[in-house]
Design a binder for these strands. Structure first.
Length: 595
RNA sequence: GGCCCUAUAGUUCAAUGGAUAGAACGCGGGUUUCCUAAACCUGAAAUUUAGGUUCGAUUCCUAGUGGGGCUACCA
């Protein structure tokens, strides 16, 4: 529609002023709601060509369009803005056209489509997932679907930080205080079971440190020589040396954690195509660092540690191997990137990781480029902001961390209570009820997080912020469920007529508003992929649901006597339902048939 | 100290350099014989400060102020 107008205006300018115009001179936007019209030309940039006032220029072009373009049914000029009205019949034609496209808005990967690796989640195996991980998982998963819908090959991947001193801490605590208990013997979820031992370790370590400090040590010294800390370090050395007993305990405890993570991932509805483990990739990282050192790209200091000098790129020197030859975080990520490139030959690799690691990912990409891996130009850090609570940052030490499993349960619970209060659950089986409430609770949670611009910090208020009214997931889900209900009723009563065409249908303003939005969806999917923005999809779904509700509210669909009109409204409803379903799909939110 | 991100109604979020800065929650007022009232309509309420670029700045640039992050031989 916009392209139609674009070429029309080009012709108009050519015929009126004898000049061709550039794209940035030709500014078309949607007409604001309060003015009459559908599309608006901003005439200010054209005054240099027309040598007339903005108003006059707009008027002349508008007149030309009204005469020469039959799709244009009218125009008005306000200040320098030319508001063009598209004939309702054009919109009806457009509706017919988009209705004929299958899998509306989604593209299928073509030969030559880009391969995109998306890494998200990236948990440590010493603690259960929390609210911060939820934002990460939801963003990562939604992005993966958006990329897929935009026609890319997508590989969803996860790097599990399964080794290191923090893992040893929970191992030490379990060995010392566990008394042979297991998740099965205690009935606890595996990740919480292990996480509790980690907390116990930290608690007892803190006590030891305090004791040492009161007997005269500095805090740093105390931390260094605390017996528990020594034990954890000893454990790490044994693990790195491949001590069979330590390794088998490590495997057992990690298996418990993975079982727990699986439950949380399933509840969140996220999946992975390939999981990498740091315990595998850090070795490759060491190898490539050492090779690169031989080739002379890196610096070895007197103590034996290996560094890369990035001062020429306005960054610092960065450690790649410790003086004792062991790997650091960066080493492991270098290895993971190289392995992944060898596995998939990706065009792009997106890391969904919090913005506190911006520096780390700058260094990572630069280091790989410096080492001669040209594909590192395709690495992209999708950096998102932190989730804060109304009372401030989440701090594990102060116990203010919001646990992922608790939150999911709480959301489902709230949905159940609200549904009961509204008397929504009559006539459903217990399984159906539970399923609907789960869908709604998670819909609320997911939408609440995804509608926010990812790069900004966000505040999450578990008590108040999650709502089921207004700009929320359940509002969109509810709209969808009502649409399904209308369609179902139409089928039951046989009022559908699929043979009707709409080419000359007489549409009102609300119907046109819905068509306009539907028309935008395919390009929006592409834009969301380009901008890496689930929020774009989320806010679009809300707009569409809201617009549809206005349409829906004061029109009778099923009881309309005019067959064409009734069919058209049903068609509009059905398409809105499909687009909402697709939009929610992109966000990883389920669309309930009833609620 | 250096580097990065951020600042919009009471609150949580929007706004490719364009018109009178949109929503939602909360607060005030209304609409149910009718396809789901978890809906719809309606009122009050905001761009951190000072400069600059521009026909036009919430948006771009510079500086200040507030908030957050990074600057580990932690991950």
């Amino acid at each position: 529609m916009e392209n139609l107008l674009r070429t029309g205006i080009r012709e108009a300018v050519m015929s009126l002023y004898g000049t061709d115009i550039s794209d940035d001179q030709l500014q078309i936007q949607k007409t604001r709601k309060e003015f009459e019209g559908d599309l608006t030309l901003v005439s200010f940039p054209l005054t240099a060509i027309s040598h007339h006032s903005p108003e006059q220029t707009a008027g002349e072009i508008g007149e030309y369009l009204a005469v020469h373009l039959h799709a244009v049914s009218g125009y008005n000029v306000i200040k320098g803005f030319l508001n063009v009205t598209i004939a309702p019949a054009e919109w009806a034609k457009r509706l017919q056209k988009i209705a004929d496209v299958s899998n509306y808005g989604f593209s299928i990967p073509e030969p030559g489509a880009e391969t995109v690796v998306i890494e998200y989640s990236s948990p440590n195996t010493n603690k259960p997932l929390h609210l911060g991980h939820i934002r990460n998982n939801l963003l990562g998963f939604s992005l993966s679907r958006i990329f897929e819908a935009a026609g890319n090959h997508v590989i969803r991947t996860n790097i599990v930080n399964d080794r290191g001193i923090h893992i040893c801490k929970s191992m030490v605590a379990w060995q010392k205080y566990g008394g042979g208990a297991t998740p099965a013997s205690t009935g606890k979820k595996g990740d919480h079971f292990v996480g509790d031992f980690y907390v116990l370790f930290e608690k007892n370590l803190k006590a030891e440190i305090e004791e040492l400090v009161t007997s005269g040590s500095t805090p740093d010294e105390a931390r260094d020589k605390a017996p528990l800390m020594k034990e954890a370090r000893r454990m790490l050395l044994k693990w790195e040396a491949g001590d069979p007993e330590t390794v088998s305990m490590w495997q057992m405890m990690n298996a418990w954690v993975y079982e727990g993570f699986d439950v949380t991932y399933r509840a969140l509805g996220v999946v992975f195509d390939k999981i990498y483990y740091e315990s595998d990739t850090y070795k490759v990282g060491k190898e490539i660092v050492l090779r690169s050192l031989e080739e002379g790209d890196l610096i070895r200091k007197d103590d034996g540690s290996v560094w890369i000098d990035l001062t020429a790129d306005k960054l610092d020197q960065k450690l790649l191997l410790r003086s004792d030859g062991t790997a650091v975080y960066m080493t492991q990520d270098l290895g993971t990137a190289v392995i992944r490139y060898n596995d998939y030959h990706f065009n792009r690799h997106i890391y969904v990781v919090g913005n506190e690691q911006n520096y780390h990912f700058q260094v990572l990409a630069l280091t790989l480029l410096r080492m001669g891996y040209d594909w590192a130009g395709g690495l992209h850090h999708f950096s998102y902001g932190m989730v804060e609570l109304p009372e401030g940052k989440m701090k594990s030490r102060e116990g203010t961390v919001v646990d992922a499993d608790d939150l999911i349960a709480e959301m489902t619970e709230t949905a159940t209570i609200m549904s009961q209060e509204l008397g929504k659950l009559g006539g459903y089986s217990i399984t159906e009820r539970e399923n609907i409430c789960r869908q709604i609770g998670l819909g609320a949670l997911k939408y609440y997080i995804l509608k926010v611009d990812p790069k900004k910090n966000m505040t999450f208020n578990p008590a108040e912020s999650i709502d089921f009214n207004g700009n929320t997931g359940p509002f969109i889900q509810y709209t969808y469920a009502r649409i399904r209900s209308v369609i179902k009723k139409a089928e039951e009563t046989g009022v559908t007529d699929s043979t009707v065409t709409f080419d000359n249908a007489n549409l009102n303003i609300k119907e046109i508003n819905v068509i306009k939005l539907l028309n935008d969806f395919p390009s929006l999917v592409q834009e969301a992929a380009t901008e890496l923005s689930p929020a774009l999809i989320a806010n679009y779904c809300y707009d569409l649901a809201r617009e549809f509700n206005q349409f829906y509210h004061d029109l009778s669909i099923l009881s309309e006597n005019d067959i064409t009109l009734r069919s058209l409204r049903l068609k509009l409803s059905e398409m809105t339902g499909r687009v909402l379903e697709n939009g929610l799909w992109l966000l990883g939110i389920e669309a309930p048939e009833r609620m």
